[in-house]
Structure formats: structure tokens, C-alpha cells
Design a protein around this nucleic acid. Structure first.
Length: 414
DNA sequence: TATAATGATTTACC
DNA sequence: GGTAAATCATTATA
């Protein structure tokens, strides 16, 4: 319900500049009467209004005042009404639409979540729970946003209707044209849309916070499962002289380990640096994987053509990306089996025969041992004096170790 | 609970 | 753009 003060404000707001022409006394009287209406009781005011409406000068005065208002207030303010759409509001609207808060409900949130997940390179299987959590929270935000928006719209409509009724009522006693009512309505709408903008801004902030938390959650790492680690380690140790998987190899490893290519790259990056930093610590691990690979290779070789195990993605045959000519590392690792460090029981007595078999295969495919002593060939670290695996400090996506084995192992000081 | 292990990120380099 | 190296942050383990 409109208070008396607000009513007075509206009356004053819409009051035109005093008309100068004739009948100054009459006009003054009428204005005075209008002003005093607000200080009167309702009954008195109604009586006064009635008296004013019946005043002989009323129609003429009303028209004159309307005319003057048209010429002054409306013409001045009319120019301001055609405003371009607020760019900030447009940004907010676009963002809410993109994030799935406004617009059609299905898919928006999950798309954003998927994008966030993709950006962080997370594993697919682990994402679903976080995605659903993200979607649930986004849905909450969406619900609150729409509820509030509805409330604002309802309030806006109610207020507009109320003001319009009031102005229509007042138009009987003061000059208010339909155009002016329209203008007043648009002012009200602008006020409410600025409130809506605040709502949209808050909603955007909430979505941004949610999103950043989601990304933070993605940062929470989970250890790869044992099988994935074994696959990666097998590749690493069987390519110890050049542990730089090609893009294809990375993709295949990623597929086999159910992780992303980026995670494969991360893993190899970490592995290389950590291996190099503390070779001794990894020696046992290296021997174990070398032995496993050797056994697999020997078994395969004794059974026929292919010298690779199912769990060795890089081995010749299975993946197609890595053939025996790449297996200088394997040979070196096998060599290490005969060294002092290896005590593994699983290798068994046939290690030497496997070595011989492998030596044969290797000599056929690349003449790997040519020009190198056994000592030179055995380089568990596979790292040169510069601290790198290769002469080139930072190889870029090596498809296969195409350089000669001699260059790889020219320095075995480690 | 301290420490080690490990996946991810950042920065600098080539 | 891929990598080394340092670092961060979380998880696993003794």
C-alpha cells in the first residue's frame, strides 16, 4: 500500500512548472488545495478531490498543464530513454547462458564441467562423481537464480501495476498523460533491472566460485592403479636409453592405462627426472622390469615370431609402434641380469639363453653391439654425462630412437 | 603423524 | 611445442 509520503513524492515529481498566464490566483488556489490534500484525512481528501474535479476551471487548467509538461519535462527526458543495451548486462547474460544457469536446462552444466575436466586433463572414469556433484550444485544455483528472478519480476509487476493505478487515479486531479505513465513504468523497470543485474552478478560469482572449486578438486590427484603404473614402467625401462614415447605411443599407453595423453606425458616427465636424480633407488625396479620384459620376450621368441608380451605395449608386434630395433634398452637391461646387482629368482636359469636369443635378434635388426664393449652397452641409467638421455638436451617427440646406439651410450660414467 | 611417493603445475629453455 | 627442473599438493605408508 502506498504511503502518504510516497504519494506526495509522486505528486511533486509529476508537478509541472507553474503556469504563468491568466488566473494566477485560481491556479495558486488549486495547487494549494492539491498540496493540502495530503495532510487531510481520507474523507476530507475525497471531498476535496470531488470539489476540485467539479471546479469550473479544472478542464482548461488540466489541458494547459499537460501541454506544458509535454513541452518541458517529457521532451527533456524523452531523449534519454533510448539507451543502448548495457554491455555488462549482456556479458552477464551470455555467461549465465554459457554456464547453463539461464536458458535450456539440459547439458549446460555438464558441458561446463566437461570443459573444466578436459582443461585439467583428468581421467575419465573418476570424473563422473565430481561431474554429478558439479551439476547438482549448478542446478541449485540455477534454481535459486530462477526463484529470485521470478520474485523480482513479480514484485516489479506488482509495483508497476500499483504505480499505474495510482497515477491513473491522480491523473484526475493533476496533469498526467499516458506517455508519462509509460515513462514512469519504464523507470520502474529500469530500477528493477538494475536489481536483476545484481542478482545476475551474484549468480555469476557463485558459478565462478563453484567452477574454481571444481577445478581445484580436479587438482586433487589420485594415484594411477597398479596395472597402469606397471604398463608405464615396462615401457620406461624397456626404453631406458630413450624414454621418450612418440605421440602414437603416448596415445596407446594412455588408452591402455585409461589415463589421458597429458597424464602419460606427466608421468614420463616425472619418471625421467626422478630416475635420473636417484638412479640407485630405481635400480631394483629397473632390474625387475628388465627381467620381466626379458622373460616375456624370450617366451615369445621361443614360441615363434613375436618377441613381445601382452603387457608390454611398446614391444614389437602388438602396438606396431615399437619394434625390436628399438630395444637396445631391453638388451642392456638383460645384460644387467648377468651383473652383480640382479638377484631376481623369477628369471630362472634360462636367462643366458634369452640373452643369446635377444642378442641374435638385435644383431639382426640393428647390429646393436657393433663397436661397443659389453661394459659400454650396459648402462642401466642410459644417461650421458650431460645428464640427458641423448646428446640433444631436449628431444622433441622422438618417435623411435633412430640415432645409433653408440651415440646414446657414448658416455656411461654413471 | 612424520615421511616418502607421486601426480600435477609452473617456469625456463631450446 | 616438448622437455627439464623445481615445486606444490595430495596420497600412501611406516
Amino acid at each position: 500500500m502506498m504511503s502518504r509520503r510516497r504519494s506526495l513524492t509522486l505528486v511533486l515529481f509529476a508537478m509541472p512548472p507553474p503556469a504563468q498566464p491568466v488566473l494566477k490566483q485560481d491556479i495558486g488556489d488549486i495547487l494549494q488545495q492539491i498540496m493540502t490534500i495530503t495532510d487531510q484525512s481520507l474523507d476530507e481528501a475525497q471531498a476535496r478531490k470531488h470539489a476540485l474535479n467539479c471546479h469550473r476551471m479544472k478542464p482548461a487548467l488540466f489541458n494547459v498543464l499537460c501541454e506544458i509538461k509535454e513541452k518541458t519535462v517529457l521532451s527533456i527526458r524523452g531523449a534519454q530513454e533510448e539507451e543502448p543495451p548495457d554491455p555488462q548486462l549482456m556479458r552477464l547474460d551470455n555467461m549465465l547462458l554459457a554456464e547453463g544457469v539461464s536458458g535450456p536446462e539440459k547439458g549446460g552444466g555438464s558441458a561446463a564441467a566437461a570443459a573444466a575436466a578436459a582443461a585439467s586433463g583428468g581421467a575419465g572414469a573418476d570424473n563422473s562423481a565430481e561431474h554429478s556433484d558439479y551439476r547438482a550444485k549448478l542446478s541449485q544455483i540455477r534454481q535459486i537464480y530462477h526463484t529470485e528472478l521470478e520474485k523480482y519480476e513479480q514484485a516489479c509487476n506488482e509495483f508497476t501495476t500499483h504505480v499505474m493505478n495510482l497515477l491513473r487515479e491522480q491523473s484526475r486531479t493533476r496533469p498526467i498523460s499516458p506517455k508519462e505513465i509509460e515513462r514512469m513504468v519504464s523507470i520502474i523497470h529500469r530500477k528493477f533491472s538494475s536489481i536483476q543485474m545484481q542478482l545476475k552478478q551474484s549468480t555469476c560469482e557463485a558459478v565462478m566460485i563453484l567452477r574454481s572449486r571444481f577445478l581445484d578438486a580436479r587438482r586433487k590427484r589420485r594415484n594411477f592403479n597398479k596395472q597402469a603404473t606397471e604398463i608405464l614402467n615396462e615401457y620406461f625401462y624397456s626404453h631406458l636409453s630413450n624414454p621418450y614415447p612418440s605421440e602414437e605411443a603416448k596415445e596407446e599407453l594412455a588408452k591402455k592405462c585409461a589415463i589421458t595423453v597429458a597424464q602419460v606425458s606427466n608421468w614420463f616427465g616425472n619418471k625421467r627426472i626422478r630416475y635420473k636424480k636417484n638412479i640407485g633407488k630405481f635400480q631394483e625396479e629397473a632390474n625387475m622390469y628388465a627381467a620381466r620384459t626379458a622373460v616375456n620376450a624370450a617366451n615369445a621368441s621361443s614360441h615363434g615370431s613375436q618377441a613381445n608380451s601382452p603387457s608390454t605395449p611398446n614391444s614389437a608386434g602388438s602396438g606396431g609402434s615399437f619394434n625390436m630395433s628399438n630395444s637396445g634398452d631391453l638388451f642392456m637391461s638383460v645384460q644387467s641380469l648377468n651383473g652383480d646387482s640382479y638377484q631376481g629368482a623369477q628369471v630362472g636359469a634360462n636367462v643366458q639363453s634369452q640373452v643369446d636369443t635377444l642378442r641374435h635378434v638385435i644383431s639382426q635388426t640393428g647390429g646393436y653391439s657393433e663397436g661397443l664393449t659389453a661394459n659400454q652397452m650396459y648402462s642401466p641409467q642410459g644417461i650421458n654425462a650431460n645428464g640427458g638421455w641423448q646428446d640433444a638436451p631436449t628431444p622433441s617427440s622422438v618417435t623411435s630412437p633412430t640415432e645409433g646406439p653408440g651415440s646414446v651410450h657414448s658416455d656411461t660414467s654413471n
